[in-house]
């Protein structure tokens, strides 16, 4: 998996490419923006071609790192494969999920400024 990190109006956007499984999950877990409890992160899942329970676990734990678990991680552009695994584990309940990165960033920034 590769993670491309960009930033827009103070929000980190992590775009994941490839496979998010037990092997690649630590990479996401150890990402600086993920670890920072103050930082709101948008994770773009469009290019994730495979995710399993370890991948879900990594995203859920990323959320727990945040000061506001329900808003600290915002998910964007889930494809059908990813969405199905979220659905099975019920993890979709924990996140705000957008079908567009720009909308996700707008939401994240409004959240961040509201809590600041």
């Amino acid at each position: 998996m590769t993670i491309t990190e960009t930033s827009k109006i103070g929000i980190a956007i992590l775009s994941l490419y490839g496979t998010l499984d037990a092997l690649s999950a630590p990479e996401l877990r150890n990402n600086r923006s993920i670890i920072d409890p103050e930082k709101t992160v948008v994770i773009d899942l469009q290019q994730v071609d495979f995710i399993d329970s370890s991948g879900i676990g990594a995203i859920v734990s990323a959320s727990r790192q945040k000061r506001q678990p329900s808003g600290g991680i915002v998910l964007a552009c889930m494809n059908d494969r990813v969405r199905k695994v979220f659905e099975i584990t019920n993890a979709q309940k924990l996140f705000h999920i957008f079908d567009d990165t720009t909308a996700a960033v707008d939401f994240a920034s409004s959240r961040q400024s509201a809590s600041a």
């Binding site: 969405r83 996140f95 705000h96 999920i97 939401f107």
Partner: peptide
């Protein structure tokens, strides 16, 4: 797609902008 229990119509439209 998935929404949150307290999402307004505005929020739903935002989450499904694309």
């Amino acid at each position: 797609a998935s929404i949150h229990p307290d999402d307004s119509i505005h929020a739903m439209l935002g989450k499904n902008r694309k």
